[in-house]
């Protein structure tokens, strides 16, 4: 009898914890979507803010985030993939290789605000790129690098050696083997990792705080040397820094909805690619 009671209790505790975790997601989504959907309209995403940001939309924040993510991608993806290729395809176990791996693991654990400081010191000040979407994008690129390397390497690891041997035995060089067989075969896995990393980067705020993000810019960002608005920073600003916070709350909710939708769409694309790849095999 006592045993059954304790078993029941155990079961309840474990299930309860799991339900609570799901509930967290439910509450977050419910609160933001129930209060934010009413702010969404075509005008909200296609117009710049007006009247001291108490009216209008969030167009420049959307385009700014797209700019930022584009620069992050252009920088982090080729470098990340190249590094993963070196580690998985060329590198032999050595002191150097384990140093690279240790660096990657530690880079992934560094707080994002420290990347912000590094971006400020390196890109904004030392390289004179100024506070700009370029500086911010490169900073986010550095932050994303370890994740892209890790996920790409995992995708490369899943390609069996027999695939590589097939072309090597035909007299292909290692690079030809990578280019013609390994990369095409690993592409869905690499893409999944890249998209998930970018969705993370798009939602980051701390690294862009001192590297180029702006409260408000007139018009949209048109060149990489300009400052820019970004969705996560816009949400931060509307919810803490605006002079009439209560008045702009609906706009803040609307921004949160757009930001979460953007991140979820990227995640769903990544899940879809992964799902398709799994069912094909």
């Amino acid at each position: 009898m006592k045993k059954r009671l304790s078993r029941f209790l155990n079961w309840t505790i474990l299930l309860g914890c799991t339900i609570l975790v799901c509930l967290f997601l439910g509450i977050i989504l419910f609160d933001i979507f129930s209060k934010g959907m009413s702010s969404l309209s075509w005008g909200f995403i296609s117009q710049p803010p007006t009247k001291g940001m108490t009216h209008g939309g969030i167009l420049p924040a959307i385009t700014g985030t797209l700019w930022l993510t584009l620069i992050t991608t252009l920088f982090a993806v080729p470098f990340g993939i190249a590094c993963a290729i070196y580690l998985n395809e060329y590198a032999r176990p050595s002191v150097l290789t384990s140093m690279i791996r240790a660096s990657i693991r530690n880079l992934a654990g560094i707080p994002s605000i420290i990347y912000g400081l590094f971006g400020l010191a390196l890109f904004v000040q030392a390289l004179h790129l100024g506070t700009s979407v370029l500086s911010a994008g490169l900073t986010l690129g550095l932050l994303s690098l370890p994740y892209i390397i890790t996920t790409t390497e995992e995708a490369l690891k899943r390609i069996p050696d027999s695939m590589r041997e097939a072309t090597l035995a035909l007299g292909a060089t290692q690079f030809e083997t990578i280019k013609d067989v390994v990369l095409p075969k690993a592409l869905p896995g690499i893409l999944t990792g890249v998209i998930l990393t970018l969705s993370r980067a798009a939602g980051e705020t701390a690294p862009i705080l001192f590297t180029g993000v702006a409260f408000y810019i007139n018009g949209s960002t048109t060149s990489v040397n300009q400052e820019f608005m970004a969705l996560p920073y816009h949400l931060y600003m509307l919810s803490t820094q605006h002079q009439s916070i209560e008045q702009v709350r609906p706009l803040a909710y609307g921004t949160a909805v757009v930001l979460i939708l953007l991140v979820f769409v990227l995640n769903i694309i990544a899940f879809y690619i992964r799902f398709k790849q799994r069912t094909q095999q």
């Binding site: 969705s199 705020t205 996560p232 919810s239 803040a252 930001l259 979460i260």
Partner: peptide, 9 residues
């Protein structure tokens, strides 16, 4: 996947 700024909000 939820951005930290949304959690802060």
């Amino acid at each position: 996947a939820i951005p930290s700024v949304a959690i802060g909000f």
